[in-house]
Amino acid sequence: MSAHAAVAAPYENTGVPDGKLAIWLFLASEVMLFGTLFTSYIVLRTAAASWPVGWEVLNVPLATLNTFFLIASSVTIVMAHAKASARDKAGFYRFMGLTVLLSLAFLVVKGFEYGHKFHEGHFPSTSIFYAVYFTTTGLHGLHIIGGVAWNLGLMWWAGRDGWDDRLFLGRVEYAGLYWHFVDIVWIFLFPALYLL
């Protein structure tokens, strides 16, 4: 990706490799994106006449299970990075595979939840609560799909000649950083929509 090796750079630089700086900047912009969604949620909630209680309207036990999936996938992706830095290829495949499986499980549960709501006749246009619910979880779901695609790409690339590429380790770490951010968004989204 970057035009020069991070380590032997003759250039005046900050010691932080390009990729890491880029991913943290990207996460900064994502913080502003999801921050806006949370501001809109809080503003719409304070201005609304009445706001349904998460327990009655949404399936909280299922969402708790979903949270477990996402937290587990966070653990497995950081383990995958640890294994990759320890040059243990089998370990890397095991944990990265687990991460992809857990995120797919999250998507399946989310799909089931959406289907159940559509079946009951609740659509984004039904009320402001459902509008906020579908939009925020939908955008978060899109970010998860992006993450899954990135992780699968990494595994495929590792299989070909990526494992010995000098940028491989960095990219695994950046995939991890992005994934932890998506997990943090869910950590705030889960209580905001379901519990409070």
């Binding site: 998460g54 327990w55 909280v60 708790t64 949270t67 477990f68 889960f190 209580p191 519990l195 409070l196």
Partner: peptide, 9 residues
């Protein structure tokens, strides 16, 4: 996670 669910219950 379990704690936050119980607290809200």
């Amino acid at each position: 996670t379990i704690a936050t669910v119980l607290v809200s219950k």
